[in-house]
Design a protein around this nucleic acid. Structure first.
Length: 551
RNA sequence: GCGCCUGUAGCUCAGUUGGAUAGAGCAACUGCCUUCUAAGCAGUAGGCCAGAGGUUCGAAUCCUCUCAGGCGCGCCA
């Protein structure tokens, strides 16, 4: 619809003497204005030195393909409003039914390769709600971009080296010592305290027995701690993978931080930076001069004690990513890491790439509420609600829908009571219900002997009720919404669109009966329902939501 | 103190990257189940777009300042 109009306008405006005009086409705010509108006359008034309304008239008058329009109006300061003919609308609707969702998806990526890294939670505990938001958003974005013609790789970066994993090992080991009755053994001050530590410790004990248990280890527990660390980290990673899998979020690649050390990617990265003169020594440490690239202070790579910082392996990680030559790299981070962006982009530039090579999308914080009251979350004390628990309480679809009805960079209040209420408070059911209702319409049609498979020859001209025309126009605007969502990397636009479609279907369903004695009318209305179902299912697939047959 | 995000209906949030008279859901109130699923439908009500300036044909949207909330500012990860 939009593409067709764009072509029409381009020809006309070029005829008016503007070589390569930028033609903006938008959905008008008011339906009564028409189906599509362009403010192009207003933006041309400066170039052509004529009043916008006059230009609008010239453009409208010069359009040759009048048959696809019912009317063309000039309104307001110089908008040109287009209303499409019923015949054109019906032919476009037909394509949805015969060609399926592919016809609705604009090919924007044109096969470009894009990598999205998301979740990447430390394997030191179960995922919490904030990770869930990142997971839902990242997965939906990946699906959206895939549908938009990109080749997408989903990556999870595993921080399996460094202090946090060691601390996990110490925490589990301390519990283990306690379990096997080794007497007083101090729990690390800043150790992980959740119940899951206890569980892992028990499993660890089952695995290794009392091997590390004798009291001598109290003085030199290194071996036991390492063993506990290896065991626990593997366990946590399994749990994370399982939780993500049950949430419907899958990854193509899992990049281990340890591997970067083992393969000397880390040392190579430092040498790379050094050879370009971005490294210096100070106070017994090795520094990266990130201030040369807009960071507000220089960053330590190798500490006085000879240990690497977290940032160092992250340099290696991003260097490796960039060398894979994706057309676009996306990192999805929790908003609490936003201060980290300048130094990573400094790395990108120091390696000789434009900082735009990496796009960091921030997912804002989630506050968990129950009945309006905040639920405290702290990994340190172990008092936090895991993603698994939330899903068990409210359901995966509900949780995802709540995540995906907001822009990723707006703060989110997640109220368990509101989410759980089995009423229309959960808009996800509203949309799923529309799909389920359509399924039962088709079931009903079948029992009455209609050939629900052969909708290619139905007479769509019979869809003349105002509601039917509105729904058709809405369906045909899906590619426009889709295109905007892909370009802006905003899956939530799809979510809102689906709610609008459902919001048009339900009243229609209530007012008109689809399956009647009128065979031809029934066929036409079944076709409309089929098109709605195609669009809803396509949206759900992108968002990672299930579309139950029955509810 | 500096930086980033946010501020739109009572509540939770959209607002198509600057377009036309400001949108949805929930909550509130009034009605609708012998008819393809009432997780539904019809209707009523609800606004100084935090505030003040500016940019232009045109601002919730862009710029500056103020106020309020959140998050960052380690030789932690």
């Amino acid at each position: 619809m939009k593409k067709r109009l764009h072509d029409v306008l381009k020809t006309v405006v070029e005829k008016l003497g503007v070589p390569s005009p930028e033609i903006v086409i938008e959905l008008p705010r008011e339906e009564s204005f028409g189906d599509l509108a362009t403010p192009v006359a207003m933006s041309l008034s400066k170039i052509l030195k004529k009043p916008p309304r006059k230009i609008a008239e010239d453009i409208a008058g010069a359009i040759e393909e009048k048959e696809i329009f019912e009317k063309i109006d000039i309104a307001g300061p110089g908008f040109i409003n287009f209303t499409f003919s019923k015949a054109y609308l019906h032919s476009e609707l037909r394509k949805i039914i015969t060609d399926g969702p592919a016809i609705l998806r604009e090919n924007i990526g044109k096969g470009k390769r894009i990598q999205i890294e998301f979740v990447s939670a430390n394997p030191t505990g179960p995922l919490h709600l904030g990770h869930g938001r990142g997971a839902a958003f990242g997965a939906a974005l990946a699906n959206l971009l895939t549908a938009g013609g990109y080749k997408v790789e989903r990556e999870y970066y595993i921080n399996d080296a460094g202090k946090q994993v060691l601390l996990l090992g110490k925490s589990v080991f301390a519990r283990y010592m306690h379990l096997c009755g080794a007497g007083e053994y101090a729990f690390p001050d800043d150790g992980y305290r959740g119940d899951y530590i206890e569980d892992v410790a028990k499993e660890f004990k089952k695995e290794v027995g009392k091997k590390y248990c004798h009291s001598a280890l109290k003085e030199s527990p290194q071996q036991g701690i390492i063993a506990a660390q290896e065991f626990a980290y593997g366990k946590m990673l399994d749990i994370i993978k399982k939780d993500l899998g049950e949430f419907g979020v899958l990854f193509d690649t899992w990049q281990s931080e340890r591997e970067l050390y083992k393969s000397s990617d880390v040392t190579k990265a430092i040498e790379d930076l050094r050879s370009h003169g971005h490294i210096f020594e100070k106070d017994g440490a090795t520094w990266f001069r990130s201030t040369d690239f807009g960071d507000d202070k220089d960053r330590v790579l190798v500490k006085q004690d000879g240990e690497y910082t977290y940032f160092t392996s992250d340099i290696a990680y991003h260097r490796k990513k960039i060398e894979k030559k994706f057309d676009e790299l996306i990192d999805i981070w929790g908003a609490d890491h936003h201060g980290y962006i300048p130094r990573v982009q400094a790395v990108i530039q120091a390696l000789g790439y434009p900082k735009e090579s990496l796009r960091v999308l921030l997912v804002q914080m989630v506050s968990l509420l129950r009945g309006g009251k905040p639920v405290q979350m702290s990994k340190r004390t172990g008092e936090f609600v895991s993603l698994r628990e939330v899903i068990a309480e409210v359901g995966a679809d509900t949780a995802k829908f709540i995540f995906l009805t907001r822009r990723s960079d707006s703060h989110l209040e997640f109220d368990l009571e509101v989410a759980k209420a089995q009423s229309a408070e959960n808009p996800v059911f509203y949309v799923q219900y529309a799909n389920a209702r359509i399924n039962s319409i088709f079931a009903n049609a079948k029992t009455k002997g209609f050939d629900t498979g052969g909708l290619e020859d139905t007479d769509l001209g019979l869809l003349s009720a105002q509601e039917e025309v509105r729904i058709i126009k809405k369906l045909l605007s899906y590619p426009i919404i889709f295109e905007g969502a892909v370009i802006a990397h905003e899956p939530h636009r799809i979510t809102f669109f689906l709610q609008e479609i459902a919001g048009m279907f339900h009243p229609y369903y209530h007012k008109y009966k689809v399956v009647t004695d009128d065979i031809r009318l029934t066929g036409a209305r079944l076709s409309l329902c089929e098109a709605i179902r195609v669009v809803i299912k396509d949206g759900f697939e992108i968002l990672g939501l299930s579309a139950p047959e029955r509810m």
